[in-house]
Amino acid sequence: MVKGSESAVTLVDVAKRYADIIAVDHVNLDVKIGEIFGLLGPNGSGKSTLLKIILALVQPDAGSVTVLGINTTKNPVAVKAQTGYVPEVPRLYEFLTGLEYLDFTADLYGISTTEKHERITEYLEALELEGREGDMISAYSLGMKQKIALISAFVHRPKLLLLDEPLSGLDPRSARIIKDLLRELAAKGITTIMSTHILEIAQAMCDRIAIMHEGKLLAIGNMKELRAKAQLPGSNLEEIFLTLTGTSDIKDVVEALMK
């Protein structure tokens, strides 16, 4: 499967509400195969809920979700089998060692013994976890835990990657490896939807970006399209983001704090 015009993820009029809070407000979205798609938004804007809906972890109140041609409500297991997921705060089984953990996740996806040996060894080496793989995860730093969570998302060679703040806590070398890896995977037709607060990363990596605010999709497109939408020609993503989400009163806030 290579990059093309076929849809990897299609959301039609998807809505989700938790009591009085509207988490996702009638979102329509179409992510193409092989795209690296960025999901931006302030805290509580509904990004993580949207990722969970795509992975069938949360059932939407309205609308339909199709992932790689599969309806997530009708066949959630098939969707999960083809997806790699890293949540915003990946809580791991701390009583396992890094190796035991990766072995466990590989088995959950039914990877053969030879394949999992090859892949796990490769990833551990690439992300410089060799030598610590036999330690219990409880002793790992945040960055090491993030690396383990990322490897577990990649290890079964999924067709779709849903990554919530994937580079959080990573050292520069590992972050670079993950970024390059995502690009290589995209070239091979693997779709990535990532949520991030680091706008520079989104701008540099993503083919298209969606900006969410209070459950709604405010804007969607590549940098050129976003600039046009925000009517800020030549601006960077930070300026576009602050303008579209109505949070550009930074100067006033700082002045108030300094008083």
Binding site: L99, I120, G134
Partner: peptide, 15 residues
Amino acid sequence: PAAIRISVGGYAPRS
């Protein structure tokens, strides 16, 4: 307390 190092060396998956 320091971490318990359960295994040292290469990865050898078993059935």
